[in-house]
């Protein structure tokens, strides 16, 4: 049996058990299914909920306002953890436009190499429900930069944070109408982890050991503290 014969055979079998609805009726029925109930968010504020859930997913968080503030926040994080000023940044126009010298940082633009520890991405979206950032693979964000560094730092604009997956898909549909469908859409919600040995949680299974999210925008000063309190994380 060839692939094609298998295809014919499978479709014939499926027809046999099919509802017999016309395509239009199927779509009508699909439409009537509606969306899943909206999940509740921790706290009343969208950004606070997003940060809370990132923390619950074992990420670390920071907030920054303005381009200079953003660079300083990246620099502070890098210095605190690595005593370093180097990092690999994806070829995202928003990253290219940052005033790097103001933070004393020396980015290299491109894909992460074997000896490089930190990669920086600019997310397309943040999803509060999931505590996740969303990146598209492509020139602006090589897949390798999500997966191969020791530490993944991700910026996300406050305006790009949505409440739940359903809204994320609406935004993704709008974005991909303008551009081509990206090869990969990656929802990232934590450092790489495994519990495959006796159920003990260990970070850095195959991907990054640490994951840092910086929310960029004009946000209330108290938001970080509030998110940490929600997530039960000590400062």
């Amino acid at each position: 049996m060839t692939d094609r014969d298998a295809r014919t055979d499978i479709f014939a079998r499926l027809q046999h058990s099919a509802s017999g609805l016309s395509n239009n009726d199927i779509l009508r029925e699909q439409w009537a299914l509606g969306s899943a109930p909206a999940p509740a968010l921790p706290g009343s504020d969208l950004h606070e909920a997003f940060l809370t859930n990132v923390l619950k997913n074992q990420g670390t968080v920071d907030c920054a306002a303005g381009r200079v503030g953003t660079v300083k926040a990246i620099a502070a994080h890098l210095y605190a953890n690595y005593r370093k000023h180097r990092l690999v940044a994806s070829n995202d126009q928003r990253l290219a436009a940052l005033p790097w010298r103001d933070g004393g940082l020396l980015p290299r633009f491109g894909s992460v190499e074997a000896n490089e520890q930190v990669a920086l991405s600019y997310a397309r979206l943040g999803v509060a429900e999931l505590g996740a950032v969303v990146t598209f693979t492509g020139k602006a964000n090589p897949a390798a930069n999500n997966l191969l560094p020791e530490q993944h730092v991700v910026l996300v604009d406050a305006a790009d944070v949505v409440a739940a997956s359903e809204q994320a898909w609406e935004r993704i549909a709008a974005l991909t109408e303008a551009e081509e469908r990206p090869r990969g859409i990656n929802f990232i919600a934590g450092p790489s982890s495994t519990a495959d040995i006796e159920g003990q949680l260990v970070y850095g299974a195959h991907g990054p050991k640490a994951w840092h999210v910086i929310l960029v925008g004009d946000l209330p000063d108290s938001i970080l503290q509030q998110a940490r309190a929600n997530a039960g994380v000590q400062t």
Partner: peptide, 13 residues
């Protein structure tokens, strides 16, 4: 509450 990597792949490079 959420897995670390949830990825959607559409095809080749």
């Amino acid at each position: 509450p959420q897995t670390c990597y949830t990825s959607f792949y559409s095809g080749p490079r």
